[in-house]
Amino acid sequence: MNNRYELNKNLAQMLKGGVIMDVTTAEQARIAQEAGACAVMALERIPADIRSAGGVSRMSDPKMIKSIQAAVSIPVMAKVRIGHFAEAQILEAIEIDYIDESEVLSPADDTYHIDKTGFSVPFVCGAKDLGEALRRISEGAAMIRTKGEPGTGDVVQAVRHMRLINQQIRTIQNTRADELYQVAKDLQVPYELVQLVNETGKLPVVNFAAGGIATPADAALMMQLGAEGVFVGSGIFKSGNPAKRAQAIVKAVTNYNDAKLLAELSEDLGEAMVGINEQEIALLMAQRGI
């Protein structure tokens, strides 16, 4: 692995224990930074609105992303469609800090993900299981997040994905060395990555929770399940009091084991985003990407 990839994994390490918030304007970005976000995700529409608007959802206008870069000092991330390497080239040209190759946008390629090793800027990718996580890492992803189900305010899928990834890691840790070759074939991933998971008992990159996190309790749940930080998309700016909710989620991620503090943080936050159950939605974004 080259030096640039190491530096890109290192930036994700600096984000650990933090909250990355979706923002659509420079003003929201300032509110997020002020509330304690460790990075912001710049996008034109938050997932809940993408979901209700329908149609094809694409990379955001670079002008809008640049206005957010100018407004805050924390890292700025932005999304590209799965497989859309030209959108990624554009984001690299405006010196984005992290690219999210995201199932939230409409996929541009139903077979191939972006060859992320060809880029200098880092990528974060979503995963539902360990096979997906390791495939993205072999393509050059420097950070992983659960897919969850974006724009729903329903945490059930993020929980399912985080539990599954960690169960699969524990299984591999307890697998005999001569059986790891078959595990690699079953998961459709390089043997070397399986061997690494067997030795270390964790992913070789930082792993955040994402998709459906709406409350301090949701954030604490994901941290206790092994997430190293959280993404909050629609949950903040679709709620009654975004600044207060954002601050509460930031503190919940730091003190995820302190139930007394979590109780205080959960008080009087105003209305949470309404949310939709996974059974009620026609489009499962988590199914996008392979």
């Binding site: 190491e6 530096l7 290192n10 930036l11 000092s73 890292p75 800090d97 992290y98 800027v121 880092p122």
Partner: peptide, 29 residues
Amino acid sequence: RNAYGRQLGSFQTEAEFDAGGKIPMVFIR
């Protein structure tokens, strides 16, 4: 802060530390 710019400006090098020889140094934003 962010004296070397955004993530594309992050780098690794080696330099003297306390005149005790060179050590690896990783700079992230």
